[in-house]
Every structure is written in C-alpha cells, then in structure tokens.
C-alpha cells in the first residue's frame, strides 16, 4: 500500500484498502475533492480494483483528473471486462493533450486487436495529431470493424497530409459503411481541389443522403470551381437536405452559371431550401439573380424574405 505525507490522502488510501467494496467505492468518490496531484495514483489503483463496481466508479471520475497522468492506466482499462469502465477510459483518452502520450498509445495500438480498444486509441491519437500514427492508421483503414475504420479516417483527416489522400479517397468511394464514407468525404477538404475532383464526381452519386450532403459541403469548402456541374445536378436531388447544401455551395463558388438552378430551388416547397437558394443568389449578386430575388421579397417565409432583402442590397452594391 502507498504511504502519503498528506493526511487527507492517507485517509483516502486507508479507505481504499478497506475490505468492504462499498466503502472503497465511496472513497473513490471522495478522491475527486482531493487537490493533491498524487491522488491520481490512488485513482489508478482503483481502476485495477478487483470489484467491478469500484472500477466503474473510478472510471466515471477519470475525466476529473488530468489524463496525462494516467495514460497507461487508461489504455489498460480499455481492455476491462466491464463496459462502463471501457467506455469511460476511451472517453478520457480522447482528452489527452500531451504529445508525450503518443508513445504509449502507439505501443498499445500495435498490440491491440479488440475493435473497441483500437478505435479508442486511434481517437486519442487523432487529437494529438501525431505524425507517427499515420502508418498504423492507414493499416486500420481496412479493418473489419466500421468503428475502427471511422476513427482511422478521422485520424488521417486531422493530420492533413497530402500523401494520405489516396487512402481517404478510397474510403470515401468504396467503404461499405455510410458513416465511414461520410467522414472520409468530409476529410477531403484539406486537399488541393484538383487532386480530389475525380473522387468528388463519384461520391455525389452516393446512395446515402448524408454522404451526398457532405460532398456538397466539401465542394463548397474547397471552392472547387470545376465541380459546379455536380452541384447544379444535385440541386435536383430527391432529398431536400442535399439540394440545400448544393445551393449553399453554388453560392460559395459564386458562379453565374448556377443561377438558373438556384432560381428553381427558390421556388421549392421546402422553405429551408428556398432560404439557401436566395442566400446563394445574394452571394453571387449578379444582375441575372434579380428576378428570383424580386419574387422572393414576397415569399411566405420571413427568413426567405429577409435574405431576399439582404440579397437585394448586395445587388445594388454590386
């Protein structure tokens, strides 16, 4: 058992050594109020307690401590037999900010097979933006578990390295899981637009609407002018949310050729889409936008009318 100079800490240590798991559990709760940095060693001890309820309690308070001080213990807890403990550990790991934590994480990643553990470690490495995580992340892009692939995509996206684009494009196009494809499409926004043009052309035809909507978003963020025809096409998508994002993106591109499609959208039954369309027409602020903006001044929806007035002022300023 540990011995501590601080009497409060010593008292907690004694209680944590009690044979009664109920008392140990309450001692863990009190650990949170202890300002001594060494309290974390007691927490780590509690994370290894033989009683699952004590471990759960410790896991629930891990986010009240600095994760840096217990990276190893948290990695170990990812393998706990108890789900609450594993989830809490994964969550706390993703709060790691200290670059020094990367090393043990990478070591653990190498040895881990369990999808939950792997995904947790990848998520922790993601926010550290650790370049050495690149290789293992690439290797996990083909993991059987979609949760693992999703975290691997996230990690590579945060690294923003050009060399990872082909792998991300692969996931964006061909992954079986819609959330993985969506994440990968969202990650493409750091690219030189031309290098992902072909991929964007492909993913706008994705069967899942959220992937298509993400594609519109990415085209807008990339300001990829050559994708304009894709956006115009998407303004006729069956799902209004996709049409909405397409209209937004046309506005970001600022292209006159998109005006007729936006004009169509400005007559859509869904007011959210009319808003996006008039917003985009205002962003383009070309003379050809005027008739649509004029009509929208009398739209039944006040948000559309507001945007129309704003768009009109943009026109007169242009």
């Amino acid at each position: 058992m540990n011995a501590f100079d601080d009497p409060e800490l010593q008292e907690l240590a004694d209680r944590l050594a009690s044979p009664d798991p109920g008392l140990r559990r309450v001692a863990v709760l009190d650990l949170v109020d202890c300002p001594e940095p060494e309290a974390v060693t007691l927490l780590i001890q509690a994370l290894r307690d033989p009683d699952p309820q004590v471990r759960q309690e410790a896991a629930k308070v891990v986010d009240e401590f600095e994760s840096e001080d217990m990276a190893d213990a948290l990695i170990a807890a990812l393998n706990d037999s108890d789900e609450v403990v594993r989830n809490a550990a994964a969550h706390a790991l993703s709060d790691l900010k200290d670059p020094a934590a990367a090393k043990p994480l990478l070591a653990a990643l190498e040895e881990s097979r369990d999808p939950f553990v792997v995904a947790g470690i990848l998520r922790a490495l993601k926010s550290l933006r650790e370049p050495a995580a690149r290789e293992p992340a690439l290797a996990r892009l083909n993991a059987a578990d979609p949760g693992v692939r999703r975290e691997a995509v996230g990690l590579l996206g945060w690294l923003k390295e050009e060399s990872n684009l082909p792998a991300l494009i692969d996931r964006a196009r061909d992954d079986d899981d819609a959330e993985v494809r969506r994440a990968a499409v969202g990650a493409l926004v750091y690219a030189e637009p031309a290098s992902v043009a072909e991929a964007l052309r492909y993913v706008v035809g994705d069967p899942h609407w959220q992937v298509r909507a993400e594609a519109m978003n990415s085209i807008g963020k990339l300001h990829h002018q050559d994708s304009l025809p894709l956006l115009i096409e998407a303004t006729r998508d069956n799902t209004w949310q996709v049409r909405e994002k397409a209209a937004d993106a046309i506005g970001k591109l600022g292209r006159v050729e998109g005006i007729p499609a936006l004009g169509e959208c400005s007559r859509d039954a869904m007011s959210n889409l009319r808003k996006a369309a008039i917003g985009a027409l205002g962003a383009i602020a070309h003379e050809q936008c005027r008739p649509y903006i004029q009509t929208a001044l009398d739209d039944p929806d006040p948000d559309v009318r507001k945007l129309a007035r704003w768009a009109q002022s943009k026109l007169s300023a242009a």
Partner: peptide
C-alpha cells in the same frame, strides 16, 4: 442508496 456507506453525492 449507499448513503449509509458515507456517500453524499446527490
């Protein structure tokens, strides 16, 4: 409830 164990969380 484990208040009898000294818990006062709530």
């Amino acid at each position: 409830c484990i208040a009898d164990k000294g818990c006062t969380v709530c």
